[in-house]
Amino acid sequence: MNSENSIAQTGVLQPHSDPAVVRGGRDRRPSGGQSPRVRTTRADPIRTLGRVLVWAFVTFNLLVFAFLILSSFKTTTDIFRAPWGIPGSLNFANWTNAWNESGFARATLNTAGLALGASFCTLAVSAPAAYVLSRIRTRSAGPLSVFFALGLGIPAQVTVIPLFEMMSRVGLVNSLLGLFIIYTATHVPFTVFLLTGFMRSLPREIEEAAAIDGASPFRSFWQVMLPLARSGLVTVLILNIISMWNETLLGIVFLQTVEKYTVSLALLNFLSSMQFSGADYGGLFAGVCILVLPMLALYLWLWRRIIEGITLGAGK
């Protein structure tokens, strides 16, 4: 009966909906008889070594990002002379140069518009599809869901050449609108896939209650399902924003003039211009920070959602 007791306890402690909430290891075991046994295994040297390695890895990642930010305030000579030195004064010259002269201001605007606009459009197109695929039982719903999931496996390098030809016929090469359409469409499979799985896991009872109250199916979708699925919608929206913000291969093929560049292209452009204008690592790292910091901010704000969304995708 002891084990029954712990079944009940772990059942309570494992909210299967959100693994991210299981915090800090404090939830590990019910305070019961056998805990001293567990504790004896914790002191062995292999485990200590493991912990040291984990912390080394964590420290490495933190140092890398500290290094990026520090370096963006330094001159190139300072970066090489004392890579880990704290900059003597906050030198914003790199940032203003990158922002004003290397085209990062324009690029940031372009990318933000693209990523926000296209990810909203993807969501607007995919959420209804996911709703009917997860709720309506017709013979085609199952195969169609699988068909959408196939799109996850098609990499951009397969489609890029035909897409380029298609878009150049309608004059949408070197156009942010063209890239906007492509980003919207290419993120549909992932969004439909994730949302179909998510909506399937939501309870039907509330919708049934709404139906009995006489709500039309459209109203039920709009006023019951969408609010119910809000966390899934927000998660997939953020994942798409991140993916579009960082996207490079399609951008590099479709955008040819500097004023249309996205941030990653502006950074690559800066990288290649260093060959002629001399190594300006301070400026490079300022550009790097412009690419990274918005994502860092998003991550600090919504890390739980982001992690949850990614593990949700894999858990299906």
Partner: peptide
């Protein structure tokens, strides 16, 4: 620890 290890996944691979 998990948040820090995961972070590179959302940073541009170029960076």
């Amino acid at each position: 620890i998990r948040s820090v290890l995961f972070f590179p996944h959302i940073v541009s691979a170029i960076v």
